[in-house]
Computed example of a mutant assay.
Amino acid sequence: MGGKTQFFIITTILLAAIATGFLPIIINYHRHHHHPPPPLDLPSNAAQFLRSNGFTFLANLIHISPNLFLSTPESTIFAIPDSAISNLSIPPYMTIELITYHISPNKFTLQDLFQKPLNTCFSTLFQQQKISITKKDEKNRLLEINNVLITIPDMFVDQSVAIHGVSGPFASFKRFPEINELPICTMINQSQVTKVDFIKIKAEWKMVVKFLSLNGFTPFAFWLYNVLDGIVKDHPDLHSMTIFAPPVIEVMEVPAPMVPKFMRAHVVPKKYSFKHLVSMSRGASIATLCPGREIEITGTVVSVSDELLSINRVEVTSPDLLSSRSFVVHGIARAFAMDGDARLST
């Protein structure tokens, strides 16, 4: 099935779902807040600007279901390109969740956003989740929200509404059936930062454990879960990581006291995508979470048809198995050896 055909089918299903089932829930929710309906010409004008700038999907949606976007006295809409929406293999209700994550119940023009400090957070219509200003360059008129560039600033500005085109979605669904990669906003109180970061890190680890257990890496996932609290406690500032997961672990070869070191030897405190790893020279070493323990690039083959990589003489069989902005998981043929240079001594 071609991409355009698939996009058309998904759009039709989504609009039907909104019109018949999901939208009344949203409308009923917002009725309790007694907000007046948007001006009759506002949805049409906004839809016209969206359509003329290539955002046909959102133009149709705002025309059919204006209360989804304009349910508050003011709003800022970050418009996702048609191409990004058509590439999402998610059910209609999750598309609605994603769209509401791109709507703020406050009006912000580009100049308004530039006047806010970096890392400023503001709320969205999705489950009280917040988005943040992650980069701004006022001289060159560049601004990013959740690390996503605003490509068409002030596409449409009304007394109560501002619409900006963005290069892609603020969140992703990579190999996991829920919105993820929602950044935690910076708090003023440092103790709050520590608490929020701890919760975020642990939640991400648990997501990795669940994913691995459902995708053929059950033994590794089980051991990772058992050492999780120790890793999070010892590395509270761990904001990026690379995990090398073997499908089978010979339990008898790893004494119980060695399990924490064994598992940490398969985790690198920095995110390395497969593309990044194959670009490294043979013999390059990378530190792991196990003190004094490094892994080594022992072989790379990059050709038109093949892109192979071995680490500690173990082949990476499932590169980029799970990936987000903060971590990546690579499947490997077997666990890293514990003898010779790779000895994990107590």
Rank of each mutant, 00 (worst) to 15 (best):
N87S: 08
S324P: 07
A16L: 08
A287D: 15
S318D: 11
D197Q: 10
V157E: 11
I62M: 10
D154L: 13
N312T: 02
T109D: 02
S89Y: 02
V267D: 07
Q192T: 00
V251I: 03
N140G: 02
P269F: 15
L40I: 11
S123D: 13
K233E: 14
I80E: 04
V254W: 10
I201M: 12
V196H: 08
G299K: 13
F126S: 06
F170L: 11
I249P: 06
P257M: 09
G54H: 12
L143R: 05
L277V: 07
P66G: 14
K233C: 03
T317I: 08
Y272A: 04
V301I: 08
P117V: 02
K202R: 15
P183W: 06
I9A: 03
S285Q: 15
S281H: 12
P117W: 09
F336R: 00
N180G: 12
P24M: 07
D234L: 08
K200T: 04
K116G: 07
V328M: 05
S123L: 13
I179F: 04
V161C: 10
I201A: 07
A284D: 13
I188C: 03
I145V: 13
P257C: 01
S310Y: 03
D154V: 12
F156P: 06
V227K: 08
L40G: 03
S52L: 12
G165Q: 06
L142G: 00
H276S: 11
I231W: 13
I188Y: 08
M94T: 00
I231Y: 09
N180W: 13
D320M: 11
F22E: 03
D237P: 00
L113Y: 04
S65Q: 07
R264I: 05
E178G: 02
N226A: 12
T300V: 15
Q192C: 06
G292K: 09
S326Q: 13
S323N: 11
H102E: 03
V157K: 05
N180C: 02
V259Y: 02
V157F: 11
A84M: 08
T242C: 12
L61W: 13
N60A: 05
P105R: 12
N215G: 08
A245N: 04
S65N: 11
Y93N: 02
S240A: 14
F108S: 01
P105Q: 05
G165S: 09
N146A: 09
K200Y: 12
I62F: 05
D237R: 05
Q111L: 10
Q129L: 08
L142N: 10
P246I: 07
S326D: 11
R31I: 04
L322I: 12
I163Q: 06
G54Q: 14
I199K: 09
F22S: 05
F8T: 00
V329E: 04
I201E: 06
K136I: 02
P105M: 11
L212M: 09
P81Q: 12
S86L: 03
Q127F: 14
L224N: 09
G2T: 10
C290I: 01
S273A: 07
Q192F: 09
I9K: 07
S191R: 13
K130D: 06
P66A: 06
L149A: 14
S86T: 04
S240G: 08
S75G: 14
I295A: 03
V208E: 06
F108P: 03
P24V: 01
N147C: 03
I9Y: 11
F114D: 01
N67G: 02
F336Q: 01
